[in-house]
Design a protein around this nucleic acid. Structure first.
Lengths: 201, 201
DNA sequence: CGGTATTGTCAGTAAAGACTGACATTACTG
DNA sequence: CAGTAATGTCAGTCTTTACTGACAATACCG
């Protein structure tokens, strides 16, 4: 795990490193590392962290200067964050600049991430698994009818793929249960309960 | 999401594409894609998928030929899979070759993955968050004592970082609850319950 | 204990992914 | 509705990560 504690991300620029920026930078840097670890682009994570800490919505220019990234990078990353419902546009009415702010409650944010990952990744994968499983079944049946030598292997391959497909279906159910409970008071109760339960290993 | 349905991964080699290999390849390819999406190397995922489907433990040579990867790549990927407790060594006694097999129950496997991610990623991140949070608190207090102009900002930054740290602590509790329940009959009950609960969104 | 089959390592290279900055497009302003 | 300030796009470049294959180390065998 990187997260080397460099003097400060912002000291690289000409701007002075205040106590505030130094504190912020450590958090931003860590968040960037975590993001990378989970398949999310580092810039995306850093911008998100910055907006999470910021007391007011920020515009793109402020972000690019603060994080020392190009405005193209910033624009793309912000598009991603919007698509993940991690940040919101804020229009001052009749303002030219567009401002962005992040959700302030981490559980609400996490909830949105899970919902999005479910939609983009889990559901399509399950669809494909069912397709593959069906195809395996058909192939196995054909081989069986023909008394092919590999009929038995095909049957077993189908059995294993079906088993995994079932797992993913159940996994989705688990996600759904989590989302149903989510960030509200019920979720709070669940999390309280988690603290009391016997700890795993 | 890629997973282009190419004729067959194995037809690239000289070996013929049987009905079996074709079925296997689709599963292996999909699993490779999923792995990449979650920050796991594609080769690692493909080997895991192959071992999951295989009726008997396989040696490295078989794997490299089947997946058309170099033996160096295979060796490294297997080391990873072992470290993640996703596969096991199987020694035929007094055998020169080392064989590998994967866990057959997907929930047991998933359980092991979560435990490992908890250990490697979640816990270290939480430790760092606490450090950063403490540092922010100290900095804020110092600024406050000096009546610095940015004392208020520092206090707020600390408040946000602390909020996020609390979230991660609760998140770990949730993981612990899951691990405690895990793959046994209790876990089964939980997953059944999940099916009945009102669906999220 | 030398010979050989197998696995481990890692420097170099290939592939994938991220970032920049010039140009295009959009949206307010006078 | 021309002028300008801002955001969006994307080809080219840079950075990171993954993969290969030659060499090294290990483990069984006679």
């Amino acid at each position: 795990m990187p997260a080397t504690i460099e003097p400060s991300e912002s000291t690289m620029a000409d701007k002075p490193a205040t106590a505030l920026t130094e504190v912020e930078d450590r958090f931003i840097s860590l968040w960037g590392d975590i993001s990378a670890l989970w398949g999310v682009n580092r810039s995306v994570g850093r911008i998100h962290a910055l907006l999470f800490l910021s007391r007011q919505p920020l515009d793109m220019e402020t972000i690019t200067e603060r994080l020392q990234i190009s405005h193209g990078n910033c624009s793309t990353s912000i598009r991603d964050l919007l698509a993940w419902n991690s940040i919101r546009r804020v229009h001052g009415p009749g303002e030219r600049r567009v401002l962005y702010e992040s959700e302030q409650d981490p559980w609400t944010w996490f909830h949105a991430c899970i919902r999005e990952r479910r939609r983009r990744e889990v559901v399509p994968v399950i669809d494909q698994l069912h397709e593959i499983s069906d195809h395996a079944k058909t192939t196995a049946d054909v081989a069986d009818a023909k008394r092919s030598a590999d009929a038995k292997d095909l049957k077993q391959a189908h059995e294993r793929i079906a088993r995994f497909t079932k797992f993913m279906d159940e996994f989705k159910d688990l996600i759904d249960a989590f989302l149903a409970v989510g960030a509200g008071p019920m979720g709070k109760a669940l999390r309280m309960a988690a603290k009391v339960l016997p700890k795993g290993k």
